[in-house]
Design a protein around this nucleic acid. Structure first.
Length: 961
RNA sequence: GCCGGAGUUGCCAAGCCUGGUCAAAGGCGAUGGACUCAAGAUCCAUUCUCGUAGGAGUUCGCCGGUUCGAAUCCGGCCUCCGGCACCA
């Protein structure tokens, strides 16, 4: 009878709730296990890829439940930032794409008008995540503890956390250059373009502003290569641009209008005081910084007023644009005449070779231009040429002798030194700009702005880093590559801007409420808050009661319960109860998150725990999972919404099939390409197993005990042991291979060999169905019930492997049968005869004796070729076989020496004649030929081709005739 | 560039830490067979090459080394992928 997964999913999820399996309560008599996945950001619908990590967590939690642990698996969502705002805005304005996206993902039409406010969108998606994803997938999470970063009680927790960071001296203020929208405040510039309508690929570049004196004013050029100042020979101005004169302190600078605007954001006291047409500046002479030489100002159209300052210092030796433009200017007689540039002046401008690079000649810029076939200014290939020569110059270049005291220095080093020297002498300044046009969601242009009083969490703190790093060595971090690398990540982790101004959702910074705590910083210590959210959610705790004193007591055990109770109004027994919960459940055993968390969330998570909590509460484990990708190995994009909605996939494949797909398709630590065919395959496998189990349960057949029963029971007990071993390292994939492949094959083999004893089958099914519970819980429950077993599998305990029931001999015997079948097949294929019967000769006793002696010696550590030979020759029964005996002894000695005694013992302990005789009918059925078993020791056996002597224990001789 | 990861037999993917039992699990696909009126599903077998009886040979990105022995350890090279921050 086929299972209707849609029905059984609902049925069992309801039963679990009725049995209170979702509620986790402290139980001091039981070991605890607390596991979470890094909660998702609320940015819209999730896709099938996200369920991968989530379902690992549920499976691990379920496994821990059935092996004696009291498990807590709470969930929440992260909504800090401006995702909710921009989504609500789009919905409110009726943005067609957004509305379509909602509908496509199953949002009811009448719901849409309600989603025009940020909090209502967030609440809507909280509901989607919990009901359509997590509950739909059968998670046994403690739903009562659900929390969201925008809840008022959560905010109290974050305020407390920041107070503790301040107490620890980890909050610092310093200047910061942030991407800022004039309306919305700081925005995130990243490829997901959550905050942007354009320019997510832009990068922030650090320019060095170089000041060129002209009279009492300065032409200001922006460069990325301050180390090339020794090669400056002229200065480029775009004649078409009307430049601005800007007062900057006591000085007057000339820059493009766009640059003037940007500078106002980054520097103090910048003010536009006039303008000067670029055309007018052509022919000026200005004094270059560092080298203090006068160089001429020449016209160049490639100077983009939107990039840098719109003015460029020219280093033709190493800048392709400069080289090609200089050549063009020199050739263009008309232009020279137009700007009154004398031939003499132009002739005086000669490139200076300043950097030595492997693979390049005197003038790298020229080389690259020739190589790429660039003929004139404006060629789009110049972009690539520039990149190439910059990159090679930076990594391979060395300063030549003309570069004064920097001569001989590697470019990597010279760059920083020269820049610093010019800054110190007042000839240069630092300036930040974006590499391309960035436009905020609101439509305004985004620029880099300096903030003087930006708050940072000082993750660069040496002691904190060291303590965290040390602690990581005691943690269970998977995969092992990350366990190794996490130390490097912690070292690299620097001060992090932790608050922002502008239009953001989040908790206000407790020391200055013009700041909002940003998204990464309010999501580091939260697992401990799940122990408190329970009481906030059911109304026993009100946000205003959650004072610093409350958290100090509840989380840190600091202070006096009675006083805290008096000052907050929280009943003392409740306070004690929360305190005990915290002590019981914490530390967190596993935090599981996608690989994107390795360099961002996990370091913050670790360091905040170490910084704020006592050592006994520091996390015990981190597991990183890789992605399910779309084609082209992208993440399946949630913003593009192309992927199938999760509830649709669940309905199509069944939740259990999807859970099995996630658990088994590949190791947790590799990316997997989403494939419906693959999921379908797992669906079929679940179907097949369910059908087989139901047939077994329903079967009327029964029989007396045979050796096959011991075999099956042995196999299943071996599997329990293997499952436990695999799950000790959370290897779900290995576990699934055993449960859904190996155990299925064993069950089939048992039937194929004629096994049908009811008692054995029931014993095996009891084990098997329980083993299915962590990954395919609904199917497991359905089969459990069908079998008439008591209670819920999800509430039960996986039996321990019973070593008394594990029989190496029984398992060996069946392997031998399989080997023989395979060998018969092979001989049959090659022999090219049409046999009419099969004769199997078992091995003579003396050969078993040789092996027996070998194992004896192996146990004592005395096994060697001469020793074994000698021992055998002292045994008359063996010795009389002459050369065959010594040859066998040699072979056995060499072979056995490499393996364990236990693995060889069944070779001579098995009664092959009895085993094969028992399997005679089976072999005859399988091969379609009559089978005879002959004992090699018996007198006068039929052996026309003298095959019997080839028989060795574990390898009966085969004769086809 | 820095940090990290990967390259396995038609495809996906185990194995590599702890060298031998590895021609290398499992799945998919393919081929043959059973079942069926038929299709699908299911079951069985085969799926690197050769083969005169269960055997032999050549393989695990490339080159070299260590070792009695290497997919596994070491060195070098080639190719591909991810992260490099305020983005969860």
């Amino acid at each position: 009878m086929a299972i209707d997964y849609g029905i059984i999913e609902k049925k069992w999820q309801k039963r679990w709730i009725e049995a209170n399996l979702d509620k986790s309560e402290r139980d001091d008599s039981k070991k605890k296990f607390m596991i979470i996945f890094a909660y998702p950001g609320v940015t819209g619908y999730l896709h099938v890829g996200h369920l991968r990590g989530y379902s690992y967590v549920d499976a691990i939690g379920r496994y821990k439940r059935m092996t004696g642990y009291n498990v807590l698996f709470p969930v929440g969502t992260h909504a800090t930032g401006n995702g909710g705002i921009s989504l609500a805005k789009k919905i409110a304005s009726g943005d067609e794409k957004t509305i379509d996206y909602l509908k496509r993902n199953g949002c009811p039409d009448d719901k849409i008008p309600e989603l025009g406010k940020p909090m209502s969108v967030i609440e809507f998606f909280n509901g989607v995540y919990v009901n359509e994803y997590w509950k739909r997938f059968g998670f046994l999470s403690d739903w009562r503890r659900f929390t969201c970063t925008l809840y008022p009680d959560y905010a109290r927790f974050i305020e407390w956390q920041f107070r503790k960071l301040m107490d620890a001296g980890l909050l610092i203020q310093k200047p910061y250059y942030a991407s800022v929208c004039p309306n919305c405040g700081p925005v995130a510039v990243d490829p997901s373009e959550t905050d942007l309508s354009k320019g997510g690929r832009a990068e922030t570049q650090e320019y060095t502003l170089l000041k060129f004196r002209h009279g009492d004013e300065f032409l200001v050029a922006a460069t990325l290569r301050p180390e090339t100042v020794y090669g400056q020979v002229c200065f480029w101005v775009n004649p078409e641009v009307e430049y601005k004169k800007v007062r900057k302190g006591p000085e007057t600078w000339i820059v493009s209008p766009q640059a003037a605007e940007k500078m106002e954001l980054q520097m103090d006291g910048v003010e536009v005081v006039g303008s000067v047409p670029g055309r007018e500046m052509i022919g000026w002479k200005c004094e270059a910084p560092m080298i203090h030489r006068e160089i001429p100002v020449l016209p160049a159209t490639f100077c983009n007023p939107d990039v840098g300052t719109g003015l460029v210092t020219s280093v033709p030796s190493d800048a392709p644009d400069d080289w090609i433009s200089l050549e063009a200017v020199k050739k263009d007689k008309g232009m020279a005449a137009e700007y009154g540039l004398s031939q003499e002046l132009l002739d005086s401008v000669v490139p200076i070779s300043i950097i030595e690079m492997k693979g390049y000649g005197e003038f790298p810029a020229k080389d690259v231009i020739d190589r790429m076939g660039i003929k004139q200014p404006g060629d789009p290939k110049l972009v690539e040429a520039k990149k190439q020569v910059y990159k090679d110059g930076y990594h391979m270049g060395r300063m030549k002798d003309v570069c004064g005291k920097f001569a001989g220095m590697r470019v990597e080093e010279a760059k920083d030194r020269m820049r610093q020297e010019m800054i110190d002498s007042g000839e240069a300044e630092v300036f930040y700009d974006l590499t391309e046009e960035v436009v905020c969601r609101c439509g305004a242009r985004v620029h880099i702005k300096r903030l003087d009083d930006q708050w940072f969490i000082n993750y660069a703190d040496e002691e904190l880093t060291r303590k965290t790093s040390d602690h990581c060595r005691t943690m269970d971090i998977n995969p092992p590559e990350y366990r190794e690398n996490v130390h490097a990540v912690l070292n690299w982790y620097r001060e992090r801007a932790c608050a922002r101004q502008g239009n953001w959702l989040g908790t206000r910074f407790p020391f200055d409420d013009k700041w909002i705590i940003e998204a990464i910083s309010d999501s580091t210590l939260y697992p401990v808050y799940y122990l408190i959210s329970l009481y906030a959610n059911d109304g026993r705790l009100r946000p205003e009661q959650m004072t610093e004193g409350f958290f100090d007591y509840a989380i840190l055990g600091k202070g006096d319960a009675r006083k805290v109770s008096e000052s907050t109004g929280v009943p003392e027994d409740l306070l004690e109860r929360i305190r005990k919960d915290v002590q019981y459940w914490y530390p967190l055993d596993i935090n599981l998150g996608g690989k994107e968390h390795m360099t961002v969330h996990f370091p913050g998570f670790l360091m905040n725990h170490v910084a704020i909590l006592p050592e006994g509460m520091w996390p015990r484990g981190i597991t990183v999972n890789w992605y399910v990708t779309g084609k082209n190995s992208d993440k399946i994009s949630k913003s593009k919404g192309g992927a199938q909605p999760i509830p649709g996939a669940a309905a199509k494949f069944g939740v259990d099939a999807m859970r099995l797909y996630y658990a088994h398709i590949a190791s947790m630590f590799v990316d997997v390409e989403w494939s419906e065919d693959a999921v379908m395959m797992y669906r079929q496998r679940v179907d097949r197993i369910a059908a087989l189990v139901q047939d077994l349960i329903d079967s009327e057949k029964d029989s007396e005990e045979t050796p096959m029963d011991a075999w099956l029971v042995s196999r299943f007990n071996t599997h329990i042991r293997e499952i436990r071993e695999a799950m000790d390292s959370y290897d779900l994939r290995q576990m699934c291979t055993i449960v859904y492949f190996d155990m299925l094959n064993d069950m089939k083999w048992y039937s194929r060999r004629g096994g049908c004893r009811k008692e054995t089958i029931i014993e095996a099914l009891r084990i098997w169905i329980q083993a299915m519970m962590p990954v395919t819980p609904h199917t497991a429950e359905e089969l459990w019930e069908h079998a008439g077993f008591e209670g819920l599998v999800s509430a039960g305990q996986l039996p321990e492997a019973d070593s008394a029931k594990i029989s190496a001999g029984a398992e060996y015997g069946e392997n031998l049968i399989r080997d023989i079948m395979s060998d018969i097949g092979e001989v049959r294929k090659i022999a090219k005869i049409e046999p009419s019967r099969i004769i199997l000769y078992t091995s003579p006793k003396w050969k078993r004796d040789v092996m027996s002696r070998a194992v004896e010696m192996l146990d004592k550590g005395e096994l060697s070729v001469p020793a074994l030979t000698k021992a055998c020759m002292s045994d008359e029964a063996i010795k009389k076989n002459g050369k065959a005996a010594s040859e066998l002894a040699k072979k056995v000695a060499v072979d056995f020496a490499r393996s364990s005694a236990d693995s060889k013992r069944p070779l001579f302990e098995t009664d092959e004649f009895a085993l094969l005789s028992g399997a005679k009918d089976f072999l005859a059925d399988e091969t379609g030929l009559p089978v005879e078993i002959m004992d090699a020791d018996a007198e006068g056996i039929y052996d026309p081709q003298n095959k019997a002597r080839a028989a060795v224990p574990g390898r009966p001789a085969i004769f086809l005739e």
